[in-house]
């Protein structure tokens, strides 16, 4: 999965990251002191239950949201002090592919390239190259409105890669996709990573994390509760359980987030610990 780099300088480094909002019920602490270290060249999975602070953390790291306290560097750039510098280094594909349905795929990519400072001819060439990369060349001149969910995701991925970012943030890239489209996105993510891009991936699908990620972190209630390689986390749980069974990443997730799994009449139910 990794490029096998000899050194692992930090692609992402967050220290004591905090985000508080003023909500109708008072101050809400969405992220409560997150420390993260993502190595250059790896695929890093960021997991957590709904509302755990995953997307808020991603939005802070990608300059889309202000940081209440703490600091974050992406590709060596302080995202709060130099947001434009950081934007040159990162690619962002957020939840529910944010695309302009009235443009064609090619127009969207060309526009994105122009906004990253490329000339018209450079932008056109880059758009062509990316359409090929995500296998959308034939659909490139069709309006995005008519794309399937999987095509939109792939186009969103391509648009995040326009400026050849060092770090790619993918926020739940396969949510809502059918299994075939999901596999296609996984293949794209692997390919992008093999080309040297660090990938920071949030997902609710533990199988996805297990398949794609070198290391993962699990966030719950705004705090990191586990961090390590999938196999190390599973081994750790197996050791703690000591019952000889082999835990899955689902078990690790449920254990880490304070939930447990019980069999009731053949159905799997999730309950609060």
């Amino acid at each position: 999965m990794t490029n096998g780099q000899a050194e692992h300088p930090s692609a992402i480094r967050a220290v004591g990251l905090v985000k508080t909002y003023r909500g109708s019920t008072g101050e809400i602490e969405a992220v409560r002191g997150v420390d993260l270290e993502v190595r250059s060249g790896e695929v890093f999975g960021f997991l957590g239950p709904n509302g755990a602070g995953k997307s808020t953390t991603v939005r802070m790291l990608t300059t889309l949201m202000t940081i209440t306290a703490g600091s974050a560097h992406v590709a060596g750039v302080d995202v709060a002090a130099d947001p434009d510098g950081a934007r040159h280094k990162i690619g962002v594909a957020l939840q529910e592919a944010g695309l302009d349905p009235r443009q064609t795929g090619r127009e969207l990519l060309t526009l994105q390239a122009r906004l990253f400072g490329m000339s018209s001819s450079e932008a056109a060439a880059r758009a062509e190259e990316l359409l090929e990369l995500v296998e959308l060349t034939d659909a490139g001149d069709r309006r995005i409105k008519g794309y399937s969910g999987g095509m939109k995701r792939r186009l969103d991925l391509a648009s995040a890669l326009v400026h050849r970012p060092d770090v790619l943030f993918l926020d739940e890239p396969t949510t809502g996709l059918d299994p075939a489209s999901r596999l296609t996105v996984w293949a794209e993510v692997r390919r992008i990573n093999q080309l040297g891009t660090t990938v920071f991936l949030t997902t609710q699908y533990l199988e996805e994390a297990d398949q794609l990620c070198d290391r993962i972190a699990i966030i719950d209630q705004g705090r990191i509760v586990r961090e390590g390689t999938p196999s190390a986390l599973k081994d750790d749980l197996a050791r703690r359980r000591g019952d000889g069974t082999t835990p899955t990443l689902d078990d690790v997730f449920l254990d880490a987030t304070g939930r447990t799994r019980v069999q009731v009449d053949g159905d799997v139910k999730e309950i609060q610990a």
């Binding site: 300059t63 592919a97 944010g98 695309l99 906004l115 648009s159």
Partner: peptide, 16 residues
């Protein structure tokens, strides 16, 4: 419409 659909964030993530 772009804010609700997410494309606005895509534009905000560019260095303009």
């Amino acid at each position: 419409e772009e804010i609700e659909g997410g494309y606005f964030d895509k534009l905000r993530a560019t260095p303009i």
